[in-house]
Every structure is written in structure tokens, then in C-alpha cells.
């Protein structure tokens, strides 16, 4: 018997887009509630005063990761039908480096810039405009980097396949790493508060 979820094959375009809107609403709400629509708060991540970015991101990753694992194991979700981004090792390494630099310059990432703009922050709207211009320019002059962008194409490659351990062990290691990171973040934040004298 095959697992009943995801609903990919059953949904028509209209219901799929309705779900997109609802999921977007919840996504935007979660980001805003966490304070990630504020560039000043996000920048705290890189100046070691406020680790909201790390805490929100890794709590979200481990929640979804554990959910996927258990729903798959219980036979509710067919993991083979969930789209996994393909790996292009070197372009993703280079893209990550460039993206990280842009993240500090803007103080926002593409998703959070929308929340910032929607809550009145004009720097959020400018980040969106820059993002749009950047994608447009890169797409228009894609020729010189097209070859590079296709290099080291490894297809769908997941961490358990790379380090040759089970799915469960990998998940355990990621949860342990996240908890370790949370502990360190809390300690650094506490020290930063002491220095400010509050």
C-alpha cells in the first residue's frame, strides 16, 4: 500500500495555488513574529548580539526534518515524492559565499526582505528591488557563467549517502549539532548583555 501523502498528483492548479497562498501567509507570519522582518535584528546575528536567525532557522530545520522522518517511517508520507534540490557542489559553494556577503550588506535575505517591506521598512523594499535587479542582470548576461553554474552536478545527493550512515543517525547528528549551536548562542548572548550592562 502506498502512502497517502503528499497530495501532488491529486491537486489541480487552483487548489495548489490556494495552498501556496496559505503556506505563504503562515511563512510570513512566522518570520514576522520572530522579528526577522527587522534588518537591525538580523544584523545582530553577524555582530554576535542577537542569534534569532540561527535559533529560528535551526529550530525550523530540525522540526521539519524530524517530521519528514517520522511521517515517512509511519507510512503516511511517501518521501520519494518530495522534491529534493539537486546538488551542484562548486556553484553552490560560490553562490553561498556571494549570498552571505550580500546578506550582511542588506541585513535581510530575500524572504525576510518581503516581510520587512510589508511592515513598512523601506530598506526591505530596496533589498527586494536589488534582488530583482540582481537576478535580472545575472539572467540577462548568463552566458559567461552558464558553464560554471553546471559544474560538479551530482544530482540528488543527501548527507546520509555521502557519509555512509543511516538516515536516523544523520538526523540525530544534526539535532545534536543544533542543540550545541543553541547552547553556544545563548552563552554569547548572555555575555553581550552583560557588556551592555543590562
Amino acid at each position: 500500500m502506498s502512502a497517502p501523502l503528499p497530495l501532488v498528483g491529486i491537486l489541480g492548479e487552483r487548489s495548489s495555488l490556494a495552498i501556496a497562498l496559505v503556506i505563504g501567509l503562515a511563512f510570513g507570519t512566522a518570520l514576522e513574529r520572530a522579528g526577522l522582518g527587522s534588518a537591525r535584528k538580523l544584523a545582530g546575528q553577524f555582530y554576535l548580539t542577537d542569534f534569532a536567525v540561527l535559533k529560528v532557522m535551526f529550530s525550523a530545520i530540525i522540526t521539519a526534518m524530524l517530521g519528514l522522518f517520522w511521517l515517512g517511517r509511519l507510512g503516511v508520507l511517501d518521501l520519494a515524492q518530495v522534491y529534493v534540490p539537486e546538488t551542484f557542489l562548486v556553484p553552490q559553494l560560490a553562490g553561498g559565499v556571494i549570498f552571505g556577503a550580500g546578506f550582511v550588506l542588506a541585513g535581510l535575505c530575500p524572504g525576510t526582505s518581503c516581510v520587512a517591506a510589508a511592515s513598512g521598512r523601506i530598506d526591505g523594499a530596496m533589498t527586494m528591488l536589488g534582488m530583482f535587479a540582481g537576478v535580472l542582470a545575472t539572467g540577462a548576461w548568463f552566458g559567461p557563467i552558464a558553464g560554471f553554474a553546471q559544474r560538479t552536478a551530482l544530482g540528488v545527493r543527501r548527507l546520509p549517502d555521502v557519509v555512509h550512515v543511516s538516515y536516523g543517525t544523520t538526523i540525530f547528528a544534526v539535532v545534536a549539532a543544533a542543540l550545541g549551536a543553541f547552547y553556544i548562542a545563548e552563552r554569547i548572548e548572555r555575555r553581550a548583555r552583560h557588556e551592555v550592562g543590562t
Partner: peptide
Amino acid sequence: FAFAGGGTMGLGAVLARGCTSGQALT
């Protein structure tokens, strides 16, 4: 700087095939 940062992230996201949402979270 916000515009420049956005543009830089645009280039990075094209190369990486995604950003903090599509790559990092998902």
C-alpha cells in the same frame, strides 16, 4: 547598501539555485 546587498544576493542565489528559504530551510 540594501540595494547593493539585494543585487549581490541575486547573483548568489542564481548560482546556488536558491536562497535562505529554498536551499537553507528546505
